[in-house]
Nucleic acid binder design. Structure first.
Length: 583
DNA sequence: GCCGCCTATG
């Protein structure tokens, strides 16, 4: 084949998007004897990888006489793309036995495989090889190592690589910010972002901003969130789907649902992700009907929901008392949308049934779910919590035991179970359980919560009013509770949730004629068990009490009240919130 | 010449 046609052929290979064209090119190469050319086969292999036909790529690779470093690396990348990073590691081990030396592409790819598998041991070995091979200051290799250490929860390891690098680019900085973000160290993530801005060698990109917005969301930091939104507008990446979804999520978690709505409406052609963000956000604000409306709208627009969309939908039903709709949606998941309900969906439904007192149904459903032990722990925790509210000691005991057996969220189970006994007056059981807990060395981390008002952050701990203006908050809460009682609120028996409400500045003054800061602070603390205690939670889940309280408050004036969820670190460190790290 | 790093919805 002449050089010109050869070049043309490769060009065509690079742009192939059909499997049949790839196989016919394959046949053509075979006939013309070009399968002996490593370069050409690499191109063809790449076609198969792009078409996600890893089986063909693999076979072609195995038939190669002399695979070079590119052949090895692209097949590894292909395995990663198709969700089998373990094969990439296996290939790398094979490659190390061959005479082909890895290059920077190989090392970055392998590091990526370690990240995905959270294989710290293998990652560290790789790091050593990187050093031996002289890539310890290579930009891309080090960026992937930073990411790898982060995904393996070795923040210090990531930082060491970051600090020792020669040049850093926006990707490196973003990786480092993401490491802190993913390991529940949001304040450090923001610090790194500030440092990046100070040096300002290049502007942040959509990756950086999406990451920073997420940090703001997880910290409940509205002001930095808005500032980042401003940067988004300045940079011009508003139309980026990930960024706009992150903004929707951030505003919702920072108590500004109306802003979430504004951002969402500006998205031209929202995909399943912004839709899901909105559905989840509306659900959190008790706007279940809006969630369902969005869901139906999405279906009409032929956007395919995913499993998380259904978590949002079921949450919406649960938090707005739409029990029968919820059951209907659960049943439609498989039949209408081809999504098999998983433990998290059953958790929502068990929670929903339990919340409205249909405890026996909830219990029957929970028993019928057959999945892994660790996955069902949250479901039994929901049932346990509902049993406590309804005073069903029998179901509480079984739920508690199932959780303790699963080894997940054990401390919470002990505490809730003990509270159930206490409510039923079974003090012997309470003491017995506390002793058992002590013996087992189970310790419940005290929760902590915070709220941002203007530029100050106020932090609260269970039973601790030593924060700034604590006395004022206490007296305001008492006043608020009195007003709520006057209007018929009878809850207050120890909610599992904490309602965060934000009000537009103007309406605050109207409502009770008090200063908005006070109101915002107080409204951060509306779960009022026995007198006034500041209750802390890990995961905003409006219990029926809170829901009632929320409805009542809404009736006080026509103001727009917004529920605020500031805490989403519960998936870190064995289910414990590590928010203490933030101060 | 062919291959690589960072972002999102519970």
């Amino acid at each position: 084949m002449a050089l010109y046609t050869m070049a043309h052929f490769i060009y065509k290979l690079q742009n192939l998007s059909l499997f049949t064209s790839a196989t016919s090119a394959h046949a053509h190469l075979f006939k013309s004897g070009l399968l002996a050319s490593t370069l050409t086969v690499n191109h063809l292999n790449n076609c198969y990888v792009r078409l996600r036909r890893i089986d063909y790529a693999r076979q072609l690779f195995e038939e190669m006489a002399e695979p070079n470093v590119v052949s090895w690396s692209s097949l590894m990348a292909g395995y990663i793309d198709t969700g089998s990073p373990e094969f990439a590691l296996w290939l790398y081990a094979r490659m190390r036995e061959s005479s082909v030396m890895p290059n920077e592409f190989t090392l970055a790819t392998v590091s990526n495989a370690c990240s995905l598998l959270a294989e710290l041991k293998t990652g560290k070995k790789l790091h050593a090889q990187v050093a031996i091979l002289g890539f310890q200051r290579n930009l891309v290799v080090c960026s992937s190592l930073v990411d790898m250490y982060g995904k393996c929860n070795d923040v210090d390891g990531a930082r060491r690589v970051f600090d020792l690098m020669g040049h850093r680019n926006v990707v490196t900085w973003t990786s480092m910010i993401a490491v802190y973000a993913q390991n529940a160290r949001g304040h450090e993530a923001l610090q790194v972002f500030r440092e990046f801005n100070r040096l300002m060698m290049e502007p942040p990109n959509s990756f950086t901003l999406a990451c920073v917005i997420n940090v703001c969301a997880s910290l409940g930091r509205l002001v930095p969130g808005k500032v980042t939104h401003a940067v988004v507008i300045r940079i011009g990446c508003e139309s980026n789907g990930v960024v706009s979804s992150a903004l929707v999520d951030m505003y919702s978690k920072c108590g500004c649902f109306s802003y979430s709505d504004k951002v969402f409406r500006r998205i031209h052609d929202p995909s399943v992700i912004p839709y899901t963000s909105m559905i989840v956000s509306a659900a959190k604000y008790g706007l279940g009907e809006l969630s369902l409306k969005l869901f139906e709208q999405m279906i009409r627009r032929a956007i395919k929901p995913n499993d998380i969309t259904f978590v949002g939908v079921l949450h919406a039903c649960s938090h707005s008392g739409l029990v029968d709709e919820g059951l209907k949606y659960l049943n439609s998941m498989q039949t209408k949308h081809g999504i098999t309900p998983s433990a998290k969906h059953y958790t929502c439904v068990v929670d929903m049934l339990g919340r409205t007192g249909r405890l026996n149904e909830a219990y029957q459903l929970a028993k019928s779910v057959k999945v892994d032990g660790s996955e069902v722990a949250p479901m039994w925790a929901a049932l346990l919590s509902a049993s406590r509210l309804q005073g069903r000691v029998d179901i509480a005991i079984e739920s508690g035991n199932r959780i303790i057996d699963s080894n997940e969220q054990v401390a919470c189970a002990y505490v809730t179970l003990s509270n159930t006994f206490a409510l039923a007056g079974e003090w012997n059981n309470v003491h017995g359980l506390r002793a058992k807990m002590k013996n087992a060395g189970v310790y419940k981390d005290p929760g902590c919560s915070w709220i941002e008002v203007k530029d100050s952050i106020y932090q609260f701990r269970a039973g601790d009013l030593s924060c700034e203006r604590g006395t004022e908050i206490l007296s305001f809460l008492q006043e608020l509770q009195r007003k709520m009682r006057e209007r018929g609120y009878v809850g207050g028996g120890g909610g599992t949730g904490l309602v965060f409400v934000e009000v537009e500045e103007e309406s605050v003054e109207q409502i009770v004629g008090l200063h908005s800061e006070k109101l915002a602070l107080a409204f951060g603390l509306i779960s009022i068990p026995k007198g006034i205690t500041i209750r802390i939670m890990k995961n905003l889940r409006m219990c029926s009490d809170c829901h009632e309280a929320f409805k009542l408050i809404s009736q006080i004036e026509d103001a727009e009240f917004l529920v605020r969820d500031i805490n989403r670190f519960h998936h870190f460190k064995n289910g414990y919130c590590t928010c203490r790290d933030f101060w």
